[in-house]
């Protein structure tokens, strides 16, 4: 695929940057964790949300060698729950960003490439969906559908794609006017070919970088929806859900008496988001000449 090549070069160029290395390490660590957590979790069944039977005295234990992060209100091992929730985080962040990116790219490029009515309608749709808070969509789904991944993912994608459509449109608009695209059109190349090779191929890099840094925001927003209890069902291994159970079932005093219930899942959200941000920031600086220029207070 042609667009990936310059992107790989871009990544390669930034490999030696200190921030990029940290971001990459964190991201890889979380990815690996999401794959192997169910094998390394000390209590994998509890990690999935099953409540241990006949062990009532295990509720709300402080962190200890047996239970590294302590246990939750139902006596489940928090460490197992938290590390197994990395999978849910990865699934939500990546699918939200990936789906939004695909839809946004298609809509944005089409709007820029085909002028007239197509442009008008697609831009109207973009503005329409940009103007709806994702929590509203989540509410609608919550009213009609069962809890689950689809609620979180669809409600985020419904508003997120519009942002990608917008930035794609802005970039693509600049490109489709360029001579070589006009020449390609005149030379009778098919629209699909021109769009893929000469439009998408050119604008994809900054949009991909934006997508990487958005992985973090997607995770934060998804966690917020799950924390509100609008997304995944109770007991599901997800950091937002675990936090919700930690705070709501214990009431406000949860984090004064049992801080570990709140601390660890939040810490993992923080680390994962940080990883994505650190990964994307150096790439963004590399691509944006305005951020690259050396400036200082020189007078």
């Amino acid at each position: 695929m042609p667009p990936s090549l310059p992107f790989i070069r871009l990544v390669h160029r930034n490999l030696r940057k200190y921030r990029f290395k940290i971001g990459l390490s964190i991201t890889i660590a979380i990815l690996v964790l999401s794959l192997i957590s169910q094998y390394i979790a000390p209590y994998p069944r509890e990690g999935l949300g099953y409540v241990p039977v006949g062990e009532e005295n295990r509720r709300l234990l402080h962190p200890s060698p047996q239970h590294l992060f302590g246990t939750d209100t139902l006596g489940r091992d928090l460490f197992s729950r938290v590390i197994m929730a990395s999978r849910s985080a990865i699934i939500q962040a990546f699918s939200v960003v990936f789906l939004s990116l695909i839809i946004g790219l298609i809509v944005g490029v089409l709007a820029a490439y085909f002028k007239g009515l197509v442009e008008l309608v697609l831009n109207y749709l973009t503005e329409l969906f940009m103007a709806i808070p994702s929590i509203v969509i989540a509410l609608f789904f919550r009213l009609t559908l069962e809890a689950g991944f689809h609620v979180v993912i669809i409600s985020l994608v419904t508003t997120w794609w519009a942002w990608y459509a917008r930035i794609t449109y802005v970039y693509a608009k600049g490109v489709v006017e360029l001579d070589y695209v006009v020449l390609a059109k005149l030379s009778g190349l098919s629209s699909a070919k021109i769009i893929m090779r000469h439009v998408v191929g050119v604008i994809i890099q900054p949009i991909l970088v934006q997508a990487i840094s958005d992985l973090g925001s997607a995770l934060l927003e998804a966690s917020g929806i799950n924390f509100m209890g609008l997304g995944l069902p109770p007991g599901y291994p997800d950091w937002g859900v675990i936090l919700y159970e930690g705070i709501s079932e214990m009431g406000i005093m949860a984090f004064t008496r049992t801080p570990w219930l709140v601390f660890y899942p939040g810490l993992f959200i923080l680390l994962t988001t940080l990883g994505f941000t650190l990964l994307a920031d150096p790439l963004r600086e590399d691509l944006d000449p305005r951020l690259r220029r050396r400036w200082k207070l020189w007078f």
């Binding site: 934060l220 924390f227 937002g240 936090l243 949860a254 709140v262 923080l270 680390l271 940080l274």
Partner: peptide, 16 residues
């Protein structure tokens, strides 16, 4: 960068 990566509700809990 670090603050932007924190879930707000988590930060709120810590502040409380």
């Amino acid at each position: 960068v670090v603050l932007a990566s924190m879930p707000t509700f988590w930060l709120g809990a810590i502040i409380a």
